[in-house]
Deep mutational scan, measured.
Amino acid sequence: TTYKLILNGKTLKGETTTEAVDAETAERVFKEYAKKNGVDGEWTYDDATKTFTSTE
């Protein structure tokens, strides 16, 4: 399943996707990605669109 991440950081904005077996796995991948890029925001998830959003 393809999951999408929308980053709305103070210094980094953008989108990326990952293939994962479930939302929990995708969330771990995306949170590590955000951390590596210095984004520490509030997380939301929309199951209908398989989209995570992190907003600082």
Rank of each mutant, 00 (worst) to 15 (best):
F52R: 00
G9M: 07
A26L: 01
T17N: 06
T16I: 15
E32Y: 06
I6Q: 04
E27H: 12
Y33I: 07
I6E: 03
G41P: 05
T25I: 07
F30R: 00
V39T: 04
Y3M: 02
L12T: 11
V29M: 11
V29N: 05
A48V: 11
W43Q: 01
T2G: 03
E15H: 10
L7Y: 12
T55Y: 09
L5D: 02
L12S: 08
A34H: 01
A23R: 14
K13N: 09
A26F: 01
A20D: 02
W43V: 03
N8D: 10
T53I: 09
T16G: 04
A34L: 10
E15G: 07
K50F: 08
S54V: 15
F52C: 00
K4E: 02
T1M: 11
F30N: 00
K4H: 13
E32V: 08
Y45I: 00
V21W: 12
K10A: 12
Y33L: 05
T1A: 10
K50S: 05
T51A: 03
W43S: 00
F30P: 00
W43H: 01
K36S: 11
T16K: 09
T1K: 10
D46N: 10
F30W: 02
E56A: 07
V39L: 10
I6V: 11
G41R: 02
K36W: 08
V39D: 03
T25G: 07
F52P: 00
Y3T: 02
A23P: 11
N8Y: 12
T17I: 09
W43R: 00
A26D: 00
T49I: 06
T51V: 06
A23N: 06
K4V: 09
A23E: 07
T25V: 08
K13R: 12
T18Q: 05
Y45L: 01
W43C: 02
A34F: 03
T17K: 07
A26N: 00
T53W: 10
T44A: 10
K35N: 08
L7A: 02
K31L: 07
T25M: 11
A20F: 06
L7D: 01
E27N: 05
L7I: 13
T49G: 04
Y33M: 04
D22W: 03
S54W: 15
K4C: 08
D46I: 04
K36V: 11
A48F: 10
I6P: 00
K10Y: 11
V39M: 09
V29H: 12
T18M: 13
V29Q: 08
E42A: 12
A34R: 03
T16N: 05
T44W: 07
E32Q: 09
A23K: 15
S54G: 05
T44E: 10
T49S: 11
A23S: 09
K10H: 13
K36F: 10
T53P: 00
G9C: 08
R28V: 08
T49P: 01
K10V: 13
G41I: 06
T53A: 05
A34N: 02
A34G: 02
I6F: 06
E32T: 07
A20V: 04
T25S: 13
G38R: 06
G38A: 06
T1N: 12
E27S: 09
D46F: 04
Y33T: 02
W43K: 00
D47A: 14
A48K: 12
K4L: 07
T51K: 02
K35C: 10
A23M: 13
T16C: 15
I6K: 05
K13M: 09
A26H: 00
N37Q: 13
K31Q: 07
K13S: 10
Y45W: 03
V21D: 12
V29A: 09
E15K: 07
F30D: 00
T18N: 03
K35Y: 10
T2S: 08
N37H: 15
E27V: 06
K31A: 05
T16Y: 15
G41T: 05
V39K: 02
E32W: 07
K36P: 01
K50P: 00
E19L: 14
D46M: 03
D22N: 10
T44Y: 09
K31M: 08
T55N: 08
K50G: 04
K10N: 10
N8L: 13
D47E: 14
L5N: 02
E27T: 04
D40Y: 14
D22Y: 03
R28H: 08
T49Q: 06
T53Q: 06
E24L: 12
L12W: 15
V21H: 12
E15P: 03
G9I: 04
T1Q: 12
E42L: 13
Y33P: 00
N8V: 13
D40M: 13
E15F: 14
E19H: 13
E27M: 14
E19D: 10
A26Y: 01
F52Q: 00
D47R: 09
G9Y: 12
T55I: 09
E32R: 07
L5Y: 04
E27Y: 15
N8R: 12
E24M: 12
V21K: 13
E19T: 14
E19G: 04
E56D: 08
G9D: 03
K4S: 05
T55V: 09
G14T: 15
T53L: 06
K10Q: 11
N8K: 12
T18H: 08
D22S: 08
F30C: 01
G41C: 05
K50M: 07
E32A: 13
T1C: 13
D22M: 03
S54Y: 13
T16M: 15
T1V: 11
T51I: 05
A48I: 11
T1G: 09
R28I: 10
T53N: 05
E15L: 09
D47V: 10
F30V: 00
T11L: 12
Y33H: 04
F52N: 00
T16V: 15
S54D: 04
K35I: 12
E32F: 06
K10L: 14
A20E: 04
T2K: 11
F30M: 02
D22C: 06
A20I: 02
Y33N: 01
T53D: 01
E19R: 13
A48D: 11
T17P: 01
E19N: 12
L7S: 02
T16A: 12
A48G: 08
G14E: 13
A34P: 00
I6M: 05
G38W: 05
L12N: 08
E15M: 13
D40F: 15
E24W: 10
G38C: 07
E42Q: 12
R28C: 07
K35D: 06
E15D: 05
T11E: 11
E42M: 13
G9P: 03
A26E: 00
A34E: 04
V39F: 15
K4T: 14
Y33A: 02
T25A: 13
V21S: 11
R28P: 02
T51N: 01
E24C: 13
Y3K: 01
A26W: 01
K36L: 14
V39C: 08
V29S: 05
T55C: 06
T1P: 06
A23G: 04
F52K: 00
E32H: 07
E15N: 07
I6L: 06
E42T: 14
K35H: 10
T18C: 15
T11Q: 10
R28N: 07
S54E: 04
G38L: 05
K31W: 06
L5V: 03
G9Q: 04
K10E: 08
D46L: 03
L12K: 09
T44K: 09
K50D: 01
T11K: 11
I6S: 03
N37L: 15
T18V: 15
Y45R: 01
T11G: 10
Y33V: 05
D46Y: 04
E24N: 09
Y45M: 01
T44C: 08
V39I: 13
D46Q: 04
T55G: 05
G14W: 15
G41E: 04
K50T: 03
F52S: 00
T1H: 13
K31D: 02
T17S: 11
L7R: 00
I6D: 02
K10P: 10
A26Q: 00
V21A: 13
N8Q: 10
D22P: 01
D46T: 04
A34C: 13
G41H: 04
E15T: 13
G9F: 15
A48H: 10
N8F: 12
